[in-house]
């Protein structure tokens, strides 16, 4: 009956997992990179129309969302340090703060977009139809890029919910946190993209 006492030796490659996550992040970077390229070229060709479009955006909401995302990045980073130190309680509360930040971000986005829809500033809207072509392009890029980014916020929040579940189940621990770290990397990427989206969309002159 010696076989029953066999030690369960789990095969794990934490660095491989992390490198795989980075490779995935590179594809994300190039996905957004292509959009940034389109943005750069057309802004270069139509500086006035793009600046005019940028002025229509709500700088206050954009700034608040920047602070919200930076804060959520910090809480994810703290939660990873906490799990490494074996402080489950702090790790969990920091992750819940991150979820709350994601919610605040999306609610702000809802009101921001909602206002534009009300005044007809959306593809197919009355006000949109009166704009010069390049300004219409600006708003198309605005909706597509911030929309795609918003989708990433939602996916990131769902990933973090899974991390919370695995911490509660005791799977993620002080010596097994590769998934926690990778979900964190994804969340930081969401923050990184916003770091560029914010000045390019909201702060142009």
């Amino acid at each position: 009956m010696s076989a029953t006492t066999a030690i369960h030796d789990e095969h794990r490659d934490d660095f491989g997992a992390k490198m795989g996550m980075w490779l995935f992040l590179f594809t994300e970077l190039l996905l957004f990179g292509g959009l940034f390229l389109v943005y750069t070229i057309y802004r270069f060709l139509n500086p006035e129309d793009f600046a005019h479009g940028g002025h229509e955006l709500n700088l206050f909401v954009g700034t608040v969302n920047t602070v919200v995302l930076l804060t959520s990045s910090m809480t994810v980073a703290v939660s990873i340090s906490a799990i490494q130190k074996g402080n489950k309680k702090l790790a969990l509360s920091m992750l819940w703060v991150t979820i709350a930040a994601a919610l605040v971000f999306m609610v702000n986005k809802y009101f921001e977009w909602g206002h534009k829809f009300e005044i007809g500033l959306y593809p197919g809207g009355d006000l949109f139809a009166t704009l010069p072509p390049a300004e219409r392009l600006f708003f198309l890029l605005y909706y597509f890029m911030t929309g795609l980014h918003g989708l990433h916020v939602i996916i990131g929040a769902i990933l973090i919910l899974f991390v919370i579940r695995e911490i509660n189940k005791g799977i993620i621990q002080h010596d097994n946190f590769a998934f926690h770290e990778n979900a964190g990397l994804y969340w930081h990427l969401v923050d990184l993209i916003w770091i560029y989206l914010f000045p390019l969309m909201y702060l142009i002159h």
């Binding site: 990045s73 910090m74 994810v76 980073a77 770290e181 964190g184 990397l185 930081h188 923050d191 990184l192 770091i195 560029y196």
Partner: peptide
């Protein structure tokens, strides 16, 4: 900002 996030938050 991106470099700081990459170096510290993303380890």
């Amino acid at each position: 900002k991106a470099v700081i996030v990459g170096a510290y938050f993303m380890h």
